[in-house]
């Protein structure tokens, strides 16, 4: 892909090992300014390690990272001026107020007082947090803490924003507000790399990369990614998911099945496989309280794509 503008993030051949474990294996991608790039994949796929290397708190073994034209490995301090990294739990000082936390991070980036004050005021306003300016960070709710974290990490107007599962454990309302902020940043031309465990969040991204064992499995727009998974996802609610799982796998028209919290997710060719599954389960004496089509989760998509890749390779 030849972008007319220089990429804000350019990663090539990135590798990181922890002893014998390969956390990231030859990862390459580019993110354009004003693009939201999603990283999805199971735990241990290398998402956080990639983020940490981009934020230059960890050195890669091999590969190069260029952010806004600056070689991160050669001059990390210079690159850090343009980067913002927001981990799952943003490190806030519980004993400092909302305003003092923002001020501290602004000071570390040496943002002039008038600049950060007006910027913080606008962002707190946008996040509905203006009334809590004087509250101690330790007394904020989880969602507010994340919004404060985002404010702190944006106070120096970074060109590149790295978000590592920023909305995990955040209530839906705060999540929506959070994304509103990200959209407005996109219009300002900020490049964003976001890792997420939610498919609905992945769908909000401009492009999504699926990681598996530290390597990229797929990288495309969310719509194209979903097209990769033909068929329908059914949810079977049952008390005996293990046996149900084994039973449905033997049926025709079933592409795969996955254990989930309250039963199983079954990936089928057509919607009317419902009846067939219900009959088969009843024959085995397994009580299924509900069988219905659902939106596939990231995990479903991931398993389906992984399955497809395996069968494709064996053909």
């Amino acid at each position: 892909m030849e972008a007319p503008v220089a990429a804000a993030i350019q990663v090539s051949g990135l590798e990181k090992r922890f002893g014998a474990v390969v956390a990231v294996a030859g990862l390459s991608f580019a993110v354009a300014p004003g693009e939201i790039f999603g990283l999805v994949g199971p735990d241990g796929a290398g998402k956080t390690t990639t983020m940490r290397m981009l934020a230059s708190v960890m050195r890669p073994d091999v590969g190069s990272i260029v952010i806004d034209g600056i070689d991160v490995l050669a001059s990390p301090e210079q690159a850090k001026q343009h980067i913002s990294y927001m981990p799952q739990r943003f490190g806030l000082y519980d004993d400092l107020t909302v305003e003092e936390n923002i001020r501290f991070y602004a000071d570390l980036f040496e943002v002039p007082r008038t600049v950060w004050q007006s910027r913080a005021a606008a962002m707190l306003d946008a996040a509905d947090m203006t009334p809590f300016r004087k509250r101690l960070a330790g007394q904020l709710s989880g969602g507010m803490k994340q919004k404060l974290g985002l404010t702190c990490s944006l106070v120096h107007t970074p060109r590149v924003l790295l978000l590592d599962e920023p909305t995990t454990g955040v209530d839906p309302l705060s999540r929506r507000e959070f994304w509103q902020i990200l959209y407005s940043l996109r219009s300002e031309g900020v490049a964003m790399l976001i890792s997420t465990a939610y498919l609905d969040e992945a769908e909000r991204c401009d492009r999504v990369a699926m990681l598996h064992d530290g390597a990229m499995m797929y990288c495309d727009t969310p719509a194209k990614l979903k097209e990769q998974m033909p068929g329908v996802m059914l949810e079977v609610v049952t008390d005996d998911p293990r046996r149900a799982h084994d039973v449905v796998l033997g049926l025709s028209g079933v592409r795969g099945a996955l254990l989930v919290g309250n039963g199983i997710h079954v990936h089928v060719d057509r919607r009317d496989c419902c009846a067939q599954i219900a009959v088969a389960l009843q024959a085995e004496g397994i009580a299924a309280t509900d069988i219905d089509a659902v939106e596939p989760t990231i995990e479903d998509l991931f398993v389906a794509l992984l399955e497809q890749k395996k069968t494709g390779a064996s053909k």
Partner: peptide
């Protein structure tokens, strides 16, 4: 405590040495 709470990592992504 900074390490435990995560502020250490947060500080280290700023240009501070």
């Amino acid at each position: 405590r900074e390490r435990e709470v995560g502020t250490l990592e947060q500080i280290l992504v700023t240009p501070i040495r």
